[in-house]
Simulated scan of single mutants.
Amino acid sequence: MSLPPPREAGRYRIGVVCLGNICRSPMAHVVLEARVAAAGLADEVTVTSSGTGGWHVGDPMDPRAAATLAAAGHDGSRHRARQFATSWHDEHDLLLAMDAANLADIGGGTDRVRLFRSFDPEEPGADVPDPYYGGDRGFQEVLAMVERCSEAIVSELATSLPTSLPSSPDR
């Protein structure tokens, strides 16, 4: 699946959105940001996350989400929940909603607004289920989906960005 072009030369901004910004979207944010950095694209790609609701604004990630990330070698300790604002449509090149309800809440699907799992090689377009009311297994399943999709997104970034953005001297 191809990426929409950047709004600004030299920069690509991705926003990940779920309901409260304490489980799914921060997990995706942390993993995608790590994959972007590992691919050498951190100077060109920015990842942010938010929730459609404001209940958790300023709160850290759900402890189960943080523990699941930590067990996989990721650090989610810097995360603080934020609420999605309509300005994100103009500030981001790509918005990725975690499920169909989140997608509807942020204005529905467009070239720049898609489901996170539209990049899933196993189940393209499926929802990332909300693990909040379940146990640890749900968080592990979300992490597996996030890792798979993040790999596909970074692969697409790596092939798309050199033609869209100025090349880095070390590339």
Score class of each variant (00 low, 15 high):
A100H: 14
H56L: 12
G40D: 11
P129L: 10
L69W: 05
D127M: 06
R64F: 08
L161R: 08
P6W: 04
P63R: 08
P162I: 05
N21A: 08
I14E: 11
A71G: 13
R80I: 03
D93P: 09
F116G: 03
D43P: 11
V142Q: 01
V45I: 08
T48L: 12
A158F: 01
Q83I: 10
M145K: 15
S164W: 13
Y132I: 12
R148W: 08
P6H: 09
G10T: 02
A97R: 05
S50L: 09
A152I: 03
A101Y: 01
V30C: 13
A81C: 05
R114Q: 11
A65C: 00
V154T: 04
Y132G: 10
L19S: 13
G40Q: 01
A71V: 05
P129T: 10
T163L: 14
C18R: 11
L3T: 04
E123A: 15
A158D: 07
V36D: 07
R117Q: 02
D75G: 10
C18E: 01
A101Q: 14
R13C: 06
G76H: 00
E123Q: 15
C149D: 02
R148D: 09
Y132F: 12
G54Q: 01
Q83T: 14
Q140L: 07
G10E: 02
V16G: 01
L32Y: 06
G73L: 04
E8T: 15
A144G: 05
E33D: 15
G108M: 07
R148V: 05
H79E: 07
A126R: 15
S87P: 00
R13I: 04
H92T: 12
D170G: 06
R13N: 00
Q140F: 09
L3A: 02
L94C: 07
F84W: 15
G138Q: 09
